[in-house]
Design a protein around this nucleic acid. Structure first.
Lengths: 211, 211, 211, 211
DNA sequence: TATGAATGAGCTTTCATTCAT
DNA sequence: AATGAATGAAAGCTCATTCAT
């Protein structure tokens, strides 16, 4: 009846799906819910996405674009490794606060999908950040900026683990509660400073003189 | 057919539920599956657990006992902070390898449940380890063993974040894939050594002379 | 809520399904229709029959029992081949008039199912009558009662073809109309007499003297 | 895109519909399938055919033209009743082998449609052959070529029943299986000869001397 | 006039929950 | 007190039909 979905509507499907998955989990998000939230019919969703799973994968891809853009941009603006680390920590928390549904959905999908498929997701999700961090730390190691007794890949794994927790913290009730259990009422600033300090030492980063 | 459920049977219900949730996820685990796997009737499960959600909460509690026992025991055996950290890192990976279903279930439940309820879970889950780590690090800080420029609570938060990833890594396909993306083929030993080294530096741990 | 289906109810499911398929065809018979007509819930049908197809196969089996009983009984009562042929022709029309839904359903199923599966149906359906007719005619041929220039199997095929049409005629609008187109207003008696006469001559049956 | 449908296209719609119905059955043939197979849009089909049912009726009509042409032509070429019967038997099997989709579709439609409507189909389908056979046999009866104790209409009904089975046999798995159950491995030639012999005797056909 | 995307009723199937036994 | 068959709401998905373009 409506003639060809507008781009807005197509976007709307993904975004509403992401929001719904983020807030209720995959199992409790129905195609009908998504259709209604997006103001389209059930049928049209199946026009664009083969089935529920395919739609959810598209949601993941959609949100990953945002995430990787954020990471790459923070990375590009950094003037030094130390600066980059702090930027990344900050955008991790900020992104989570501004687009909590993306992180939530990402968590819901990785946690609920068929084990076999999570492999593919993992590659897609981590490829961007892993590659970026590895490159960053490899360079730093060669430049003697960081410790050399641990491989840069494991170091970036550790670093990403910390960032990941910052992502989850603040946008998912569970992780928020966890943060409170650990950190009490420490505010974002204190948290970020603390985590960055921990990470810098963990990497064995030699602070430039004047710091 | 009318004998009261033995304790063994009640245990069995929880353990089978945990196994099933861990391997298939919440949505694909049915009460009937659990009943059959445990050799009891569907009805009796509803005698003991109000509904599916309540049963899953009980599963969580059940598995947390194992986890906290493991942590407390590792902690108790440790001769120094450095030793304790390494012990904890090792049992994290080992526990995950020996009881993957516990970690998987924990992840499935925190990821899929009603956001509101995860708060309660979080408190329950983290209370044990958080308390233990906080105490450990507070003591260490007072003894001048670790850095004092970051609050011990944030330090234990960082430390737990790393352990958590070790838990997930190795028992959940997604995190296993993620590890591969980051660390390539580095083996468990190299991974643990690397993570512990990172954590020690992150905490600013002064190695005792003779080590 | 009702505790265990009574035998009557289970029968009722099959019989209602047969009636519905017979009157509306397979595609337009829904599980919900059958459940409602039988006074049971939708779910319970899936307790007893894996899926729609399985239910329909059960319907076929159910109705075939009636059909084969009818045929065998007519066959058993016959005093001679000529007598048997007439009996069979009569029960064919009579059965169709008394249980039109059985014939209709049989037709609907053979016509609509997956081609591959009709093979199995065919064997089940025809095994009874084919075997009976073959035996009958083989004996008759050996006794010199019927022609010997055509194999008894082809003769029974021809004979069954005629009976089949009598089955369909009178219980399925299409075949009834077809009968009218051909035979005009000839009544059942005239039709049966004519068909039997045709068949007898076709088989080359030598009428016993006194007839 | 707005050119009026050519006759070829309209033909194509019918023929593709027939093929699809013949191979998959009515329920599994969608308007979209037919449109795509015919290279036209879904909408245009609704321009020419009120709905799915109407389209299928048109398919039936279309295929009946072929069938009646075949019958009339066989009939016209025949030099005697005996010759005509054999010709008709042969073209029945041959037509079914060459255009199985027509027979299959005819069967699918008569079996699945609304019972009430099959009346109309029946008249249309049988009108041609019934009229032809009736005329043939009436003439033969008057000429004393065949038995006179059974009305020519019932005789032609019997004869058509046999031909109908030859039609179905060989192009529909169910009837093919049925043939095997009855006739074993008897080949087409043996089958035709047998059926024709049966029918000739059934009609009481006096073979002309020199045959 | 032809198009084909959009519609949404309706289908099969699942499974948490109930309750007669 | 335990059983497990029955329930029926609700899910994913299909497809005949419509109608803006």
């Amino acid at each position: 009846m409506c003639r060809k979905l507008t781009d807005t509507q197509r976007q709307s499907i993904l975004e509403n799906a992401i929001k719904l998955i983020g807030s209720r989990g995959i199992a409790r998000t129905t195609i009908r819910d998504i259709a209604e939230a997006s103001g389209v019919s059930v049928g049209v969703i199946y026009k664009y996405y083969q089935d529920k799973k395919t739609l959810f994968e598209a949601c993941l891809d959609h949100s990953l674009k945002f995430l990787s853009d954020t990471i790459l941009s923070a990375s590009a603006q950094s003037t030094s490794l130390a600066d980059g680390m702090e930027r990344l920590a900050r955008v991790s928390l900020k992104f989570a606060e501004e687009h909590p549904e993306y992180i939530r959905m990402y968590y819901a999908i990785t946690g609920s999908s068929d084990p076999e498929e999570t492999l593919i997701f993992a590659r897609r999700i981590e490829a961007v950040s892993a590659h970026e961090y590895n490159a960053l730390l490899e360079r730093a190691q060669k430049a003697g900026e960081i410790r050399s007794d641990v491989s840069p890949r494991i170091l970036s794994f550790c670093f990403d683990n910390l960032l990941m927790m910052l992502h989850l913290t603040g946008c998912w009730p569970y992780y928020d509660a966890r943060r409170k259990v650990y950190c009490g009422d420490a505010d974002d600033e204190e948290l970020i400073k603390g985590v960055v300090a921990f990470a810098k030492s963990g990497l064995g980063l030699k602070e430039p003189e004047g710091n």
